[in-house]
Nucleic acid binder design. Structure first.
Lengths: 153, 153
DNA sequence: CCGTTATAGTTTCAACTGAAACCATTTGCA
DNA sequence: TGCAAATGGTTTCAGTTGAAACTATAACGG
């Protein structure tokens, strides 16, 4: 059973996903990193706050799939730039309440269309049927992987 | 045209690809990092050398989609562990000729089936039709992104 | 030939990253 | 109540990363 299918990196799903994901993310990142002084992690934070104002850091972490350290640092940076404002939750003084400043909202309003546009240009290469399959398949694989990875050390 | 589709991170293709790719890669990495003292970059180098012996560092970089710095470091580490051997090309003394040692080949023979098995368990959640679509779509998207990203600074 | 330019690979530097330790606050429960 | 455990968030530390500079060799054009 060992030498059955030889491992061909170019055909190996995890590898292909990684290459695709990196290629796409980096292409988009290039479009705004220089122009807006915005790292990819900062952008993710701005993106969720633009849509859901007043989240706590933990909620931002959940919605961005970043860990809390990364969120903490992105928020610190964004606050330094005056793009995010932090208050303390009334009902729980440990929690923060994060929101975009006017400056932060302006960035969001400029970058979001750029990102969506890039996505559209990409999806334009797929027909509608393919787009539907893609969405479903990503969802399935993610669930599958999570199922495989339950209770592991 | 600006506020048309609001950017919803959870539905944004680049974001979803990134989450999926990281989840899958990290799950597989966990299966061999501890057991074999093998990082993900080292594993990639071993994987291509296991299949194509005698590549140069640049060729390894091409086949693994890693940059030359990463390859250089992975190779250095693998040589320290006695898993990879480096010679100098006869026809061009700048180039290296890399190959697995017996020890390296042993690692390859153990890890490759593990990786393939994980991939199979994952793909088992998709029916054959979905698997075919997935392959085609990844290929298309990668080409599309490369096409978008031609001549950029 | 010889100097310029290109290529293979390594090293350096600064930024980024995550795990673990940490502090503050809240929750659960004896 | 009061105290142990849990939670939100930050800081520290050590390892990883990529861009740019560097070394060595080769290719090319005059």
């Amino acid at each position: 059973m060992a030498g059955n299918t030889p491992l061909e990196l170019e055909k190996f799903l995890p590898y292909r996903l990684s290459v695709l994901s990196n290629t796409v993310s980096q292409a988009i990142a290039r479009e705004y990193e220089d122009r807006f002084q915005l790292s990819i992690t900062e952008w993710r934070v701005v993106a969720v706050l633009g849509r859901y104002d007043g989240l706590s850091a933990r909620e931002v972490a959940e919605r961005t799939a970043m860990d809390k350290v990364a969120v903490s640092r992105a928020v610190a940076e964004l606050m330094k730039d005056g793009r995010v404002r932090r208050a303390t939750a009334d009902h729980d003084k440990r929690q923060s309440v994060l929101s975009l400043t006017a400056k932060g909202r302006k960035v969001y309003n400029e970058v979001a269309p750029l990102a969506l546009q890039h996505e559209q240009r990409l999806l334009a290469h797929l027909d509608v049927e393919e787009q539907l399959w893609l969405g479903r398949i990503i969802e399935k694989l993610l669930l599958a992987e999570k199922a495989l990875g339950v209770d592991r050390p």
